[in-house]
């Protein structure tokens, strides 16, 4: 379950030390934008030590490496792949060939390390116009791709438009990303809301993303994590309804009914699938019922 993903600069021990205490389902240890070129080596050492020694129980570790057009990405992978992070985020992924280049390099490392192939999964960060247009190709390029991630800051620069709180400029990209991810059967994560002091703005933005179909949302501030978790968690009403659906289906089956209705509405397969997803998430959050 990844409702929230929190970016932590890879060169800030104070922040990284608290990585598993801030409520995020996943932390993104950043070796890219947050780290100046002359700090890349130090950040690699810090992130390596953090994962090795702190382990961050209960929190997924995602490492954002540097992009293909830099001299850093291979060294990043050399250092990070042996740590078996849950995901490697690859920035500025613009086409399937980008994914395959990372894939080939990681495969060679996995062979060398004696890891099973595809142990390390990828989270392509799509933040260019070309990347958005190629979102499905990226999402389905390799078995390593577990999810795709929209990066709106670089994207709006590429689009030559202003990044706004309302986010009208990224509406198309958001829709396209969700469509591509769902078509490729992978998860999809929304871009951070960058005004760290706007508590209401983050809620509106997260609710909008959830409404579009995003799996979760990233954050650059720990302050946003609680709201994101709340928005991307099922409400008690959702959970109660999901159990009602499953109970109605069970009774329908017992009675040999072909069609089942609840509160006067037909329950069809998508409704059951959504109900099961809600129950799975409720169980993961400790909100499920014992009989389930």
């Amino acid at each position: 379950m990844r409702r929230s993903m929190l970016f932590l600069p890879g060169n800030t021990p104070n922040m990284i030390l608290s990585g598993d205490c801030l409520g995020a389902d996943a932390i993104i240890l950043d070796l890219e934008d947050a780290v100046a070129p002359d700090q890349k080596d130090a950040a690699r050492v810090l992130v390596r030590n953090a994962i090795k020694y702190l382990q961050f129980p209960g929190v997924e570790k995602i490492i954002r490496i540097n992009s293909l057009d830099t001299p850093y990405w291979q060294k990043d992978l050399d250092e990070m792949v042996p740590l078996k992070p849950e995901l490697i985020m690859t920035p500025k992924t613009s086409c399937a060939a980008d994914v395959l280049e990372f894939d080939a390099y990681i495969s060679a490392l996995e062979d060398k390390l004696g890891f099973e192939r595809n142990t390390v999964k990828l989270l392509p960060l799509i933040e260019t116009a070309l990347g958005v247009e190629n979102a499905y190709a990226i999402a389905s390029a390799s078995k390593r791709v577990a999810a795709i991630f929209l990066g709106a800051e670089d994207l709006s620069a590429d689009l030559r438009c202003k990044r706004t709180k309302e986010g009208k400029e990224i509406l198309y990209a958001r829709g396209r990303m969700v469509m591509a991810a769902r078509a490729a059967n992978v998860d999809v994560y929304d871009t951070p809301f960058t005004d760290v002091n706007d508590d209401e703005g983050i809620r509106v933005d997260a609710e909008f993303a959830k409404g579009l179909g995003f799996t979760g949302k990233a954050s650059i501030s720990p302050r946003h994590v609680g709201v994101i978790n709340e928005v991307f968690s099922p409400t008690q009403k959702d959970i109660d309804y999901a159990y009602e659906v499953m109970e109605a289906i069970r009774i329908g089956k017992e009675q040999g009914k072909g069609a089942v209705s609840l509160h006067g509405k037909m329950i069809d397969a998508p409704i059951v699938a959504r109900a099961q997803q809600t129950i799975d998430m409720a169980v993961a959050l400790g909100l499920g019922r014992e009989e389930a």
Binding site: N14, S18, C21, G23, P222
Partner: peptide, 8 residues
């Protein structure tokens, strides 16, 4: 404080 670590 609004510092998230402080709040934790």
């Amino acid at each position: 404080t609004r510092d998230p670590v402080g709040l934790v």
